[in-house]
């Protein structure tokens, strides 16, 4: 790739922030896979917001009609499009309401974990020396501590609520991210273009934000999107242990956990929430992948 290929364009020394953002969104919409991901995310967000109006039934109502004569849950079809659960509640309605919980957990908890993990990793990786030693030993400590136990302890100390659960999950999940980012930052910091920044006299904030972060973005995106499904499931585990979202409030995770023992007789109870978790993770993953490619100028023009 030596010869210049693009036709000469106007020469903006810096791209205006808003123009660049619009450009990125435009690129995203042009890629079919990213578009699909975005559509799924938008749908899920809409479902979460509009839940009270679009739920076909009351998600908490243990309807008598929701069970068959033997007391078993109803399979999908008819009155209940996705079937009913063990207590005769409408699965579709519970999933729609559960979108709220799961989105908040997946996005907020995971978001906090990403920001915390990346922040700690970059700081330690760039600063080195004592700062790195202290931060990374703390990370190791967190890693060695059984995640579930920590989550239970934290959840027991604070009153269980959605936000607390999200925070607890973030506390558990930031560790891996910080490890990965730390290692990568260290090798990046040795690279010549970072040396150049020191030679120019750039301050640490400029080096971290303008030069290191863009190069770390692909790892952050990959780990961040992978984290979504694990956080949603971790929430389910916590709910199962009674320290997560309190029943009867539904979340995708706790719907799976409540019903997993009936997998052979009522597979839809596990299948549909599982499908939603996969869709959520996939959607973020597709958008993340596309973002990574768009933000890397060396990959321009390749899909």
């Amino acid at each position: 790739m030596s010869a210049p290929i693009d036709p000469p364009s106007a020469a903006p020394v810096r791209r205006a922030g808003r123009g660049r953002a619009r450009e990125v969104v435009g690129e995203l919409l042009r890629r079919p896979r990213a578009l699909f991901g975005l559509a799924v995310i938008v749908l899920l967000v809409l479902a979460a917001i509009l839940a009270p109006w679009i739920m076909p039934h009351d998600p908490f109502e243990q309807s008598f009609d929701g069970l068959d004569l033997m007391g078993a849950p109803l399979p999908p079809g008819g009155e209940h499009p996705l079937g009913t659960d063990l207590l005769g509640r409408d699965l579709a309605s519970r999933l729609i309401l559960g979108t709220r919980t799961s989105l908040i957990i997946g996005v907020v908890a995971n978001g906090i974990a990403v920001i915390l993990g990346a922040g700690v990793g970059i700081t330690a990786g760039y600063a080195g020396g004592w700062t790195a030693a202290i931060l990374m030993r703390f990370t190791d400590l967190m890693m060695a501590f059984p995640a579930l136990l920590l989550a239970i302890v934290l959840a027991a100390i604070f009153q269980p609520s959605l936000m607390i659960v999200a925070l607890v999950i973030a506390m558990v999940n930031w560790v891996q991210m910080s490890r990965v980012i730390y290692t990568e930052t260290r090798s990046l910091a040795e690279r010549e273009f970072i040396q150049v920044q020191r030679a120019i006299g750039s301050g640490p904030l400029r080096i971290l934000g303008r030069h290191l972060l863009p190069h770390l973005l692909s790892s952050i995106i990959v780990f961040g999107t992978l984290g979504i499904s694990t956080t949603v499931l971790l929430e389910a585990t916590l709910s199962y242990l009674g320290v997560g979202v309190q029943p009867p409030v539904p979340s995708w995770g706790n719907i799976i956990f409540e019903n997993q023992t009936y997998f052979s007789t009522a597979p839809w109870l596990v299948f549909f929430p599982g499908l939603l978790i996969v869709l959520l993770a996939l959607a973020f993953n597709l958008v993340g992948d596309a973002l990574r490619d768009i933000l890397d100028p060396t990959l321009k023009g390749r899909h």
């Binding site: 010549e192 040396q195 150049v196 030679a199 006299g201 750039s202 863009p214 100028p297 060396t298």
Partner: peptide
Amino acid sequence: QMVFQDPGASLDSRMTVGEQVAEPMKV
């Protein structure tokens, strides 16, 4: 100021060259 050996490695691949030339003057 310094000019390094490997011009490929001493430029940030994620930034336009214009931004990079402007950077020291901004700093």
